[in-house]
Design a protein around this nucleic acid. Structure first.
Lengths: 187, 187
DNA sequence: TCCAAATTATGACAACTGTATTAGTGGGTG
DNA sequence: CACCCACTAATACAGTTGTCATAATTTGGA
């Protein structure tokens, strides 16, 4: 399997997505990760903040990879780009009964003002995530300025649509996002 | 001033926006509200869930009022509608140093899967908020179906842009949202 | 084999969590 | 006055929180 260290980070990602930062207890987390309690301070001397920050970093890289993989395999189209971004979340929400949301949003909501290290980690994760989207838009006909603006806009819509979808227990908001974004990028 | 009951609800709104559901302790809350500890169980026998739910209801009504007031005073235009919705948040974030976000998003992120009563309250708050926006779109040239879709899309973008703005400590994501929404509604 | 370093076990710490109970205060009405 | 009521005070409860210190153990390399 993976090392206790890796399992702790990944389990933190999952817990973050389900319960947020403040809602995640270290002891339940360690239990679910099947990790020894002593590993916590050994691998994460920075405490909970460090573990959360690494979980966010992992999440940012993962999300970026989803887009980057699409770019590697296809010449991007507006439709295809939007689809690969939004569909991942539609599938995930449906597969998990709307249990898990966006870990970055969770971190921001809980700690934006009270916990600088975590906030900075969230900011970095968003940059990581945004980068391949911006690249994709640049490969389309969009100039640097539009690519920057539109990629920010896409992430905003996505983060919000996830929240709405979980509140309603319906993927409609995400499907609407997909339609409107395609309209915006092709119109 | 206002009654302890009202202060408790309003203070919960504030705490929700700053620390989320799980990050808000009842004792600090009661202290900040200058309310007697005994008032908690007296006015809110349903416990924390009830207090959070009422805070969400209050928030939904408040947000809806902002839009409804605009509608009462002006004949709506795409630009004016988007502006009144987005500007409130730009001003609020700048005025409070990005300390406070959207209470509904906070509730969803923390409790969407673990706390049905709160999730339902969040869903209702979103409906309340969406209603005047849909009305405004209906007063423009949009049919019922487009008004429904676009009002959902606007709320998605808004909730997400607030998250991004707090993460970056910059109102750029909200300003981008404003521009793109105007483009979408006028294009 | 033996040492040193990496890893884990165990348990304690004070502070805090939401909930609950019981007694008591106040003010207005009968 | 006496009564009842909405309201508050004070405290206790069992559980959990993140952090920490120290000892025991395992591991890999010389």
């Amino acid at each position: 399997m993976s090392s206790p260290r890796e399992r702790l980070v990944y389990t933190m990602v999952k817990q973050l997505r389900e319960h947020g930062v403040e809602g995640t207890g270290l002891r339940p987390l360690v239990a679910e990760a099947n990790a020894p309690w002593g590993s916590l301070r050994h691998y994460f001397p920075g405490g909970k903040d460090q573990l959360v920050s690494e979980a966010l970093e992992w999440s940012g890289s993962y999300a970026a990879d989803v887009v980057a993989t699409y770019l590697r395999r296809n010449r991007p189209t507006p439709r295809g780009l939007v689809r690969v971004i939004v569909r991942w979340w539609i599938d995930d929400l449906e597969a998990n009964g709307y249990a898990r949301g966006c870990p970055v949003a969770a971190a921001v909501v809980d700690c934006a003002h009270t916990n600088q290290p975590v906030r900075v980690a969230a900011e970095r994760a968003l940059e990581t995530w945004q980068e391949p989207i911006r690249q994709a838009l640049a490969q389309l006909r969009f100039g640097p300025r539009d690519a920057e603006e539109l990629s920010t806009f896409i992430l905003s819509g996505l983060a919000g649509a996830i929240v709405l979808s979980r509140a309603r227990r319906s993927t409609e908001p995400l499907r609407i996002l997909e339609r409107q974004l395609i309209r915006l990028l092709t119109g």
